[in-house]
């Protein structure tokens, strides 16, 4: 599938996750965040970059990993990305959502 965000055509999964992190940029993140009712602050960006680093290093993302991240605590994580914090933050960060094999 592809999607048009911030004037750029992007490759995304059926549920709207970028399939190629190299297509990601700040404008795209801002747009996806807006769709999810989130206005990005400095803290959001810090978390988004941390998430991208984890993914680049093959570290599985989990809420427990957030606790150990030193970037923020879990309460803040929920406040920054209300609803499903991992599901939403990964979408904005342009990385795959945490998933299982089916």
């Amino acid at each position: 599938m592809d999607l048009n965000i911030a004037g750029i055509r992007l490759d995304v999964t059926e549920d709207g996750y970028l399939t190629d992190l190299s297509q990601w940029n700040k404008e795209i993140a801002i747009e996806i965040a807006k769709e999810n009712g989130i206005e990005l602050t400095d803290k959001h960006w810090e978390v988004l970059y941390w998430i991208q680093d984890q993914v680049k290093n093959d570290v599985a993302l989990s809420v427990r990993g957030i606790k150990k991240s030193g970037v923020l605590d879990i309460k803040e994580f929920y406040e920054l990305f209300p609803g499903g914090p991992l599901k939403i933050s990964t979408k904005i960060a342009g990385v795959p959502k945490p998933k299982s094999c089916i």
Binding site: S62, G84, K87, S100, I102
Partner: peptide, 16 residues
Amino acid sequence: TPLGGAFTKPKATAAL
């Protein structure tokens, strides 16, 4: 489940 659904891949979600 901590994930977004019992099934998380589009094809499996549709089929199962």
